[in-house]
């Protein structure tokens, strides 16, 4: 398993969480400690073992494509932090 220290700022960027300097230091150390513990998994011989994503026998589930009642638009938009007409309002995404 890789032993390099976590680049916590990069990971936080991927996770879309702004961290304070204090958090970078604290989480960096705590996650480093956790990785040391989980590195124990390298003791297991898993070369010929298939990965388990989900324990119960599963299959694709499909249903007829029929129109069904769904949440009312007003009910959903009532929870929006900001709305405009029938839309969620967000800061500009595409540059002018």
């Amino acid at each position: 398993m890789p032993a390099d220290a976590i680049d916590i700022r990069y990971v936080a960027e991927l996770a879309r969480i702004a961290l304070t300097d204090d958090e970078v230091e604290r989480f960096g150390k705590q996650l480093g400690d956790l990785l040391e513990h989980v590195n124990a998994l390298s003791e297991l011989d898993t070369a010929s073992v298939p990965a388990t994503a989900q324990v119960i026998e599963s299959r694709n589930v499909s249903r007829e494509d029929r129109l069904q009642p769904c949440l009312d638009r007003e009910v959903v938009l009532a929870q929006a932090p900001q709305r405009q007409g029938g839309f969620f309002r967000v800061p500009r995404i595409i540059a002018e």
């Binding site: 890789p2 996770a15 996650l31 073992v49």
Partner: peptide
């Protein structure tokens, strides 16, 4: 935050097989 960060790391490019897939194999065992 800690769990999102560790999960993001374990799924990130270069670490996915070493961490996430290995854990899924341990789960099989």
């Amino acid at each position: 935050k800690r769990r999102i960060l560790i999960g993001t790391y374990a799924l990130s490019s270069g670490y996915y097989d070493a961490y996430y897939v290995r854990a899924q194999k341990a789960r099989t065992l």
